[in-house]
């Protein structure tokens, strides 16, 4: 029929997808602790480095 029906439907669906994304985010506990993840993401790189150094040490010892 008319393009407006399609456009409106698409826009509502897009908005609904975001709403569902928000609800899943809340459900998974993302809003329970909004501080720790911001700190944790800074650790990641160092951890990998440490792991490598551990590995090399192991290799040396073996």
């Amino acid at each position: 029929m008319s393009v407006i029906y399609i456009l409106i439907t698409v826009s509502i669906i897009v908005a609904a997808v975001f709403l569902i994304a928000f609800i899943t985010a809340v459900r998974s506990g993302q809003y329970r602790d909004s501080y720790t993840p911001s700190v944790r993401m800074l650790f990641e790189d160092e951890l990998v480095e440490d792991d490598q150094s551990c590995n090399t040490e192991n290799k040396q010892s073996s």
Binding site: R32, D33, S34, Y35, T36, V39
Partner: peptide, 10 residues
């Protein structure tokens, strides 16, 4: 210990 996770505000 398998994993440990901190909840800082709590």
């Amino acid at each position: 210990i398998r994993y440990s996770q901190v909840d800082f505000p709590g």
